[in-house]
Amino acid sequence: MWQIAQPTKVPDPGYRALEFLAPGIRQVVAGFINGSRQRVQEIRLRLNRPLMAEADGSWMLRPDGGVTVHAARAWFVGETDLMGTLERMTASSLYTMEEELRRGFITLPGGHRAGLAGECLVRDGRLLRIKSVTSINLRLAREMPGIARRLLPFLWSNGRFCRTLVISPPKAGKTTVLRDLIRAISNGEIAGHRCKVGLVDERSEVAGCFHGVPQLDVGVQTDVLDGCPKAEGILLLLRTMSPDVVAVDELGSYEEAEALRDLLHAGVSVLATAHADNLEDLRKRPSLFRLLADGGIQRVVVLSRRLGPGTVEGIWDETAGSFLPVGSFCLSSQIEPGNSW
């Protein structure tokens, strides 16, 4: 008898990230993931303080994996937990992570990222590295392939990808949308227009590179400059990889905006994100204002968390000086209804 195969649920990345936790807290977090209806976004370890997890709010975890609001009932993170976790994250080779300790984060296999804090070693006013780690924030990478599909048709004009800026406040899904846009244009998901994309991933957040190899899907035609400063990386990609589109996350400084302005006359399109609540906020940022004023950006996608992470509040057409008639909609709801980002 023929049977139709049932679609299997994609396992929560939290399960895969458990291997980086020390055995004691691994049990606690596993218990929390099993019992939680929401997807875990972050696991926070602070020395001699309660173990916490972020999943649609911050929760202190009890030893059995349940949640509590009383710190006294929570699992307190000991030195063994913290050092054991750090040792697993560094494959018992902390000495190979000096650059990561200077930058304050370690990228892990699977694209997950561990933010670090603790006592810093400073010389001549410059941070050398974090000397002793006392806090670890394990941020779980989550791919949502297809999340940006609804945006794609609005970001093309005359057969070319428009110079696009995605703006939002923190935790509204900028990076997730950026990653999926890169994947889609690199794979040619819109009318077969396959573009060569050059991605400057300064903080290893978009492609989640581990030893330079992308752990997250950024498309078949994407070249990644991992851990490279954005301004330098943009020009380097332009000179060496002849990209059709250059993508960067969290645009901010004058140098970065200037490097993007250089692309205007090089026939290369741009896909970038920036922190801003709305267009007014964006125009108040001097570095980005000049980029907009010079026609460096053709489309601005405004995201928020109003209907959930990845809510599109509007798509601004800079050339027409108005919003496109698309209304507002939530990108995440079309992928997994009811699920937290």
Partner: peptide, 10 residues
């Protein structure tokens, strides 16, 4: 100490 300190201390 193996594997848990920086390069110089290793």
């Amino acid at each position: 100490l193996l594997g848990v300190t920086d390069q110089a201390n290793q």
